[in-house]
């Protein structure tokens, strides 16, 4: 298969996947128990006045009194026009709400995962190269411990130590309350100060799994004949690791990262909740509570698009790292 055919095939797959998700998105939330109006008038949500009358008026107002197929046609038409509608709870455009939050989530996910990957790769290389050493053992135990810890627990401990006891980092939000930043650098510094704890928490929790994959993958590679040959011809340790071993060992890591992108969003949900980080994860959590269909549909659609595109990019990278993937069909 030529590179062009490979690209076209993947693109068609991406578009189809997104369309299927759009359809599932609509019906999934409507088969959930309780409808959004029930929640809007629920006394548990601060609404003291329950009543069938309010319920009927809200149903009409939100268009939920129409037949399901009509709702679906309207939804499909709107999505194709990139109109994700208005939130049921907040009378604001969904796209606006998502845009406000998406940046925070992407920053948290990106920085947390980059740190996690860097830690996993560097420690994985050292542990694999010095297999059986104290460094290897220490890294292995740390990785296993961190992997087995629940995210919200790690986050809580981080907050307790670094924020409550040592008062080094803030407990919530992305910037200081009521502070007017004189310039962008001041804003950036404040933002990073708030980002540090959730970012490190996310990095620590996802580090363990990536480290184990990297270490095991490298150990497999180190036992290959071509590494032995490289050692025999007198190449330096550095050359062997970075030129020969690492590229081959990266293949499973890239695959795992691509698969994990969807899970990263769920990881960010917990992190955002613990650190009150106003991101998309936290928005989804609230939208599920309130059965806010438009927000849920919108966020899931955006996340799906991001995951599908990320997987698409990962596959292209995979094809680049390992040409056998790209040409597999024609050679097979």
């Amino acid at each position: 298969m030529s590179g062009r055919d490979y690209f076209i095939k993947r693109t068609v797959l991406v578009v189809t996947t997104i369309f299927v998700v759009i359809v599932i998105n609509f019906f999934l939330f409507r088969i959930m128990p309780a409808n959004p109006v029930d929640i809007l008038i629920s006394p548990t949500q601060g609404q003291e006045k329950m009543g069938i009358e309010i319920k009927e008026a809200l149903m009409k107002d939100l268009g939920l009194d129409r037949p399901l197929y009509i709702q679906f046609i309207i939804y499909l038409k709107d999505v194709l026009q990139l109109n994700l509608g208005y939130s049921f709870r907040a009378p604001r455009p969904v796209i606006q709400i998502i845009a406000e939050r998406l940046v925070n989530t992407l920053v948290l996910m990106f920085t947390g995962n980059v740190i996690s990957i860097l830690m996993a790769v560097s420690l994985g290389v050292i542990a694999a190269w010095k297999r059986g050493s104290k460094t290897d053992l220490g890294s292995l135990i740390s990785a296993l411990t961190l992997t087995s810890m629940p995210m919200f627990w790690v986050g809580g401990i981080m907050l307790l130590i670094f924020s409550v006891r040592l008062d080094l980092f803030p407990m919530f939000g992305v910037t200081k309350i009521g502070y007017s930043h004189p310039n962008f650098l001041s804003y950036l510094g404040d933002y990073l100060h708030h980002l540090f704890l959730p970012m490190i928490t996310m990095a620590l929790v996802s580090f363990g799994g990536l480290f184990l994959i990297m270490r095991n993958s490298l150990m497999d590679v180190f036992s290959e004949d071509y590494i032995l040959t490289a050692k025999a011809i007198g190449l330096s340790e550095r050359t062997i690791i970075f030129k020969n071993a690492l590229q081959n060992a990266m293949l499973p890591l890239v695959t795992i990262i691509a698969i994990r992108i969807g899970f990263m969003f769920s990881g960010s949900l917990l992190t955002e909740t613990v650190f009150s980080w106003p991101g998309l994860g936290y928005t989804i959590y609230q939208a599920v509570e309130w059965r806010d269909y438009p927000i849920l549909q919108g966020t899931f659609l955006i996340i799906t698009i991001l995951v599908v595109i990320s997987s698409f990019v990962a596959e292209l990278i995979y094809g680049y790292i390992d040409p056998r993937i790209r040409t597999g069909a024609s050679s097979g």
């Binding site: 809580g156 907050l159 307790l160 924020s163 409550v164 008062d167 407990m171 919530f172 939000g173 309350i177 009521g178 909740t273 613990v274 009150s276 106003p278 936290y282 959590y285 609230q286």
Partner: peptide, 22 residues
């Protein structure tokens, strides 16, 4: 001078923030 309503969804974190004086 001001009243600030801060969004902290987790109840345990609210108690921690209160004990810290936030």
């Amino acid at each position: 001078d001001t009243i600030t309503h801060i969004v902290i969804s987790n109840r345990d974190m609210q108690i921690l923030a209160f004990e810290k004086g936030e």
